[in-house]
Amino acid sequence: MIKHSPVTGRYVTIEVDGNEYKVFYLHNGTGQPLICQHTAGAHNHQWRGLLEDEEITRDYNVIAYDLPRHGKSDPPHNKEWWKDEYRLTADHYVNFIVTLCDALELKDPIFMGSSFGGNVALQLALRRPDRFKAVIPVEAADYAPGFFLDWWRHPHANAAQVCASGVWDLMAPQSPDLDRWLTWHYYTQGSEAFKGDLYFYSVDHDLRDELVNIDGRRCPVIMMTGTYDYLTPPEATENTARQIKGGVYIEMEDIGHFPMSENHELFRVYLKEALRIIRERKG
């Protein structure tokens, strides 16, 4: 059976903080740009359901990129990156996303990311409310310590399996087997980057004293977290949203830390509500 997907992929080369990145992204849809960040140690296939969601792509230009060192986006070609330990910082992460949005000429994009992508969404709302129409931090919190662990790349263990099975119970048992195992599969592919991503997630990202400076009326912040997320449990997200001016918290029942990847059919119900709130506030 031959069936072509409407999703297409392209590469764009950009320079960020002296690094030359050839960035791979998938896109489908027309209208309001909605740019999506995968979770730590994963890649843009986590957004496969959204990219082919006919209802959402009718009005939204959905773009899901691979962060450098993930999926089909290589490490920088102009650096001897193999001589340094990879540690993602908030500064570099923000600079990368803004540079990519500029390169793609995205006008007033909505930024959505999950986990370490959710945490950087909060950073964007703080630092660049002028550049984004709104942000949707999924499974995010002001501070998320405890996951920058040596186990993710211990030379005496199979890092691919440690990363993939180490995040297994971040997903809800109700999520379909196929989608959970696909998420597991993605995680086997990104184990060398996972720990460096988590440097941002658990160490460099700390907005506990900065939430008061995020203006969710200028750049709406719609936070969503699943009830099975043990890493940023619902109370952590709710507590974060409450401290943001105009912040919104939506609790997602029976889903975990990778909602778009583990159960898109359920996630899309909550996402449509988040998009409705943004339309209501910003048009």
Binding site: G166, V167, Y230
Partner: peptide, 25 residues
């Protein structure tokens, strides 16, 4: 929630992982 795995229960409940965790990993 939080009783659905060994990571969730050790982060959020009373499960303790002890011994040679390298073998677990």
């Amino acid at each position: 929630p939080m009783y659905h795995g060994i990571f969730s229960a050790s982060f959020q409940r009373d499960l303790r992982l002890e011994g040679n965790l390298l073998v677990l990993m």
